[in-house]
Design a protein around this nucleic acid. Structure first.
Length: 111
DNA sequence: CTCGTGACTCCCG
DNA sequence: TCGGGAGCCACGA
């Protein structure tokens, strides 16, 4: 509430632990804009370089990498696998195992 | 300030 | 089941 949407997005992404992932929509919702998934992607794209964010831990709501092949797809997949995340036959991540569940999410919204 | 773009998501047919 | 269209809004030029 007291901070910018952009700032929140960065904070949330930085808090994602290794071996876990989050979706664009979820991050957007946590940051206060359930419809801002696309903005998360843009913020991520621009801020990941400056702030050195773990952008590879962010995937779309299907549990798949949104990037197209030769556009970062392989890199992200490699980084995730390197952290212990497993991809299914359709390059899908199992949310039951790897989706990050923020503990104090509700509490975080008041910050 | 205005305009174009996009690492998403939802809704319909 | 799957593809196309529309909405969303931050960022860079």
């Amino acid at each position: 509430m007291s901070v910018l949407f952009t700032t929140r997005v960065k904070e949330i992404i930085q808090q994602i632990p290794e071996g876990k992932v989050l979706t664009y929509g979820l991050i957007a919702a946590c940051a206060g804009k359930p419809q801002g998934a696309r903005q998360v992607a843009r913020i991520l794209h621009t801020s990941s370089i400056k702030n050195n964010l773990p952008w590879h831990r962010v995937v779309n709501r299907h549990g798949q990498i949104s990037l197209k092949p030769f556009q970062g797809y392989e890199i992200q997949k490699h980084l995730l696998q390197n952290e212990g995340i497993v991809f299914g036959d359709d390059d899908t991540i199992d949310f039951d195992l790897f989706l990050w569940h923020p503990d104090d999410l509700a509490h975080r919204l008041d910050r």
